[in-house]
Nucleic acid binder design. Sequence first.
DNA 1: CTTTTACTTTAGACACATCTAATCCGTGGT
DNA 2: ACCACGGATTAGATGTGTCTAAAGTAAAAG
Lengths: 231, 231
Amino acid sequence: MLSDVMEDYLKAIYTLQMEQGPPVSTSDIAEYLGKTPPTVTSMVGKLEDRGLVDREKYKGVELTTEGETVALEVLRHHRLLEAYLTEHLDYSWSEVHDEADALEHHISEEFEKRVAAALGEPEVDPHGDPIPSADLTPPDSSGLSALSECGVGDRLVVARVSDRDPAELEYLSEAGVTPGTTIEVTDIAPFGMVTVRVGDDGREQSLPESVARTIRVRPPDEPSSEEVSPA
Amino acid sequence: MLSDVMEDYLKAIYTLQMEQGPPVSTSDIAEYLGKTPPTVTSMVGKLEDRGLVDREKYKGVELTTEGETVALEVLRHHRLLEAYLTEHLDYSWSEVHDEADALEHHISEEFEKRVAAALGEPEVDPHGDPIPSADLTPPDSSGLSALSECGVGDRLVVARVSDRDPAELEYLSEAGVTPGTTIEVTDIAPFGMVTVRVGDDGREQSLPESVARTIRVRPPDEPSSEEVSPA
DNA sequence: CTTTTACTTTAGACACATCTAATCCGTGGT
DNA sequence: ACCACGGATTAGATGTGTCTAAAGTAAAAG
């Protein structure tokens, strides 16, 4: 049996691994979770004892296959909940994260199944994040790049936005920068501020580098993917 | 801030007070929650420090108004969840209790509001238990009696059944003994076994005293109440 | 090659919820 | 009245997750 807290650590390590690749440092985990580094050291030790992470002292940690499976399970819960709350309980895009965080550890396998069925076995959540499949094979996120890495003139489709900061989500929602929307980069300022033309109505919108870094984009058209359709 | 565990204690004390009236004994709480008596003594002390229960040592405890409000809030969550799971996620009558127990401590006020709205502000859950109103005034359960206290020949309407034992619920569901159903007591055996004719199809069903004690009934017809209608 | 600096880990403490073992009421039986 | 017995409480220990303060390590800067 794994505690809620352990699940949170595994989810955090997974997320950080996705963002920066392994190994993940103690202080990054601490900052991500709002804990102190000694707390993280202690917890990571317990996770190692259970075979959920590999660790090299003073270097960092990496999820084992088993640890990754747990993280994917939690992430599946989280993202199914986000999708369900948005679709069936009238939550807005920016409200769902905290609710899903609170509930993700406490739903049964049965609940997970029924929510997935009610949604029609979706493959992405409202933010565009991929929902791990029921068999918990790692989802493939290749083919995406960060908006902050793109150049002026690039035409792109928004694939994913971060769900961590409600204020940022609110802003992006207003701006029309949502998964499935086509955008074009019109300017990049020296300090990283990216300006984009959004969708068909030609609105221009500037985004600080810190935000652009959290937006994942893919090339437009090319009939390869499926799910997202501009509403 | 109150822990999940404290909420469970308050809910347990509330339930026991409803069943047997105050004060509630340490060992009854311990048995209800599956804890040992010293654990309960210790927890009850903390609840007293916070002004949630009144206690007389070696006698028992009773909820304060504040403690009762917390219990009602938790109960409202629990019963709204039971109703929602049954109505919108295809749960059966007997499956909902454990899921609701796990989730009741972790839903936000917002979630509570939206679930209540999605259900049309219901006043009873699927077992017939009254759902405390949003303002948390104590629900009125007068006018109900236990099936085990009734006499041969009585015609009654089932008002509530206990949601504690899934096997019992399964059995009652099979038997057609559900809230809103009209029944007639046809026999009472010396050791308390009650036999009833159920609904319109004249099936007879015998229920041990331990079960009959958990079924609450009210007199039939008399246009006074509203919500339950035999489906 | 040494020193500084940034980060990590160890040490020690605390709060919570739980247990077992031992002690302590209070009441019902004699 | 007394005493015994059942139930309640105290005492003391355990496990988890957290913190602050102190010590340790590794890598960059001089």
